[in-house]
Design a protein around this nucleic acid. Sequence first.
DNA 1: AGGCCTATTTATAAGAC
DNA 2: TGTCTTATAAATAGGCC
Lengths: 93, 93
Amino acid sequence: MTRTKVPIKKIDNSTARQVTFPERRRGLFKKAFELSTLCDAEIGLMVFSAKGRLFEYASSRFNLFLTLLSTYRKTLFIFSFFFTREKNPFFYL
Amino acid sequence: MTRTKVPIKKIDNSTARQVTFPERRRGLFKKAFELSTLCDAEIGLMVFSAKGRLFEYASSRFNLFLTLLSTYRKTLFIFSFFFTREKNPFFYL
DNA sequence: AGGCCTATTTATAAGAC
DNA sequence: TGTCTTATAAATAGGCC
């Protein structure tokens, strides 16, 4: 239920946190798509889960931007260690 | 008022579109902050207005990512021409 | 152009299964 | 664990100033 108001701080319970993550992630991506569509804006959005998994959204032209970024894969891979709490991040941009 | 349901397509009226943009942009950034905080996720979000103005949000560790990106300013500047409908974009990453 | 108001739509937390 | 439900919180469209 947003049957109850939830304070905006890290959810203590791990299970509850893992349930909330995909729900709100989906909501965020939907909002990004709507803003881009309604207002003719270009949007790039990257979300790393606590375990370092990457989810991304890009409006049409932004795909060019992400393509550009892929040029720097090795550098970004190094940086991935900063984004994850895992010692061996399982994603690769 | 969401007194009426709005179809998700480009808002025809320019004034209405310009009113909606900052409102939904604020909403999107808030959602990004909430997801990052609640679920311990790292988020990078870039929004270009139709005129090419940049708005961005980054959760804590993502600032390192944006710092990295600044290394490629010149390349991104060239790309800015793809993001904007203006001939002379007034932003510079 | 920007800030409040508020009816209505939308998002979502917790339950049920 | 995943899907569906539903009560409630949150976002927001259009008015008004």
